[in-house]
Amino acid sequence: MKTETNKKSSLSVAVVILNWNGRDLLREFLPSVLKYSDGANIYVADNASTDDSVAVLKKEFPEVTIIKNKENGGYAKGYNDALKHLEEDIFLLLNSDVEVTENWLGPIMEIFYEEPKTAAVQPKLLDYKNRNYFEYAGAAGGFIDKLGYPYCRGRIFDNLEEDHGQYNDDTYVFWASGACLAIRKLSFYEAGALDETYFAHQEEIDLCWRLHNLGYKVKYTGGSRVYHLGGATLNSMNPRKTFFNFRNSLFSLLKNTPGLSTLSIILIRMILDALAAFKFIAAGKFAHFYAILQAHSSFYRHISILLKKRKNLPKKKEYYMHKSIVFSYFIAGKRKFSILK
């Protein structure tokens, strides 16, 4: 495992915002990034937008460096294409719908300075519209259960906790949110960058899993706070999001689960996915039912490719804190992270 020098003067920072037809979001959220990101270089990577995003950036935000991607390859390819042009030591991948706050970079960078083996960090993610509550896509740091279901400190499934300072700590987590993900450049490329087969959703979980398999750590800091609008690209009612979440979770399990238990874990997960599909039918959400069928079909088509990506897997390593977040939430009624244990 490679490590980087611990000298503060050596760590340069690139804040990189991926944009696709997000002119209005840039106008709303980019000013806070420019105001509070002292010492960082600010980039907007445009994913071949068809609106006037680039023109607006040139006219209204001339201090921002624009990177023009040739196509809209989604989150993973969009960032991979953009980051290869950058030389900074720390990449901070920031959604275009995130408002940052004063000194948001300070606590993040302090962790990188003091902990060479920590490869990725995320701040506290709060809801932009309901500012006293945690935001769905990361909250106070993420985990997965044995079957690959993601959950967060401050958010389990659709239950969002109010922020009372209960997660103001700094602590190690399993995954850091792609909405605001700070990562060492060397670690990013050692892990293999973002997997472009995911296109969008849960690719940060896969990346953080690969970092763990290499011996790195991922951390959350409650000392940094940002506000995420969420759903700016795909909201929870969009069947396309259902497709990506179900498919990409299976991708991560096959790629990263250590040992011979992989097959049994995926089979159990498929049974639970089938139950979720029939639940959508019962609710009259037929598009979401079809999205799950498409997700599994796509997973089958990618199996041979995914098997080739099973690299650096430890012989035995528990990647989960709880065996079944589904049981804890739906059966045991434990709807807050603080009472899971």
Rank of each mutant, 00 (worst) to 15 (best):
I17R: 00
E87C: 06
V98S: 03
N130S: 04
K219E: 01
F327D: 10
S12R: 11
P258L: 11
L86C: 03
L234I: 04
T171D: 10
N41F: 02
G106L: 01
A295Q: 13
F91S: 07
F337M: 12
L340A: 04
A45H: 08
G73Y: 09
A283S: 00
Y128H: 08
I266A: 14
F299W: 08
D81R: 13
A332C: 13
T221Y: 02
I108T: 09
K311L: 15
G165R: 06
M109F: 04
V33K: 07
G223C: 04
E102N: 15
L194H: 07
D127K: 07
D273L: 06
A48P: 11
R310I: 15
F299P: 09
F280N: 00
T242I: 11
T50R: 07
L207Q: 05
N103A: 04
T101Y: 02
N213E: 02
R310K: 15
Y75T: 15
K317W: 08
K323C: 10
D273T: 04
Q166M: 09
Y319A: 12
S53D: 05
F289I: 06
C180S: 10
A45W: 10
C208Q: 08
W209F: 09
Y75L: 15
L263A: 11
S304H: 14
R269F: 11
P116A: 01
E88P: 15
L186F: 09
L275N: 10
G259W: 00
F289K: 07
S249L: 05
E114T: 11
N21M: 07
F91A: 06
S328M: 13
R27L: 00
Y329N: 07
F157L: 01
Y151A: 04
S236H: 07
D51R: 05
D145G: 01
F330C: 00
E161V: 05
N256C: 05
I183K: 02
S9K: 06
K124W: 09
F330N: 02
F280H: 03
K336H: 10
E63C: 03
Y75H: 15
R240Y: 01
D206A: 13
E88A: 14
E110P: 07
A139V: 00
L306P: 14
I67T: 10
Q202T: 13
C208L: 05
S236W: 07
Q202M: 11
I111F: 10
K2N: 12
E63A: 10
A139Y: 00
P314S: 15
Y319C: 11
F280W: 00
D170C: 05
A40T: 03
I339E: 15
K58L: 15
F243H: 14
D195Q: 15
N245C: 12
L181P: 01
S298I: 05
V100Y: 01
W104I: 10
I144C: 05
L313I: 13
F286T: 12
L340I: 06
Y167P: 00
P239L: 04
F243I: 13
V54M: 12
I268G: 14
P107K: 07
F157S: 05
T242L: 08
I90D: 09
A45M: 12
W20G: 03
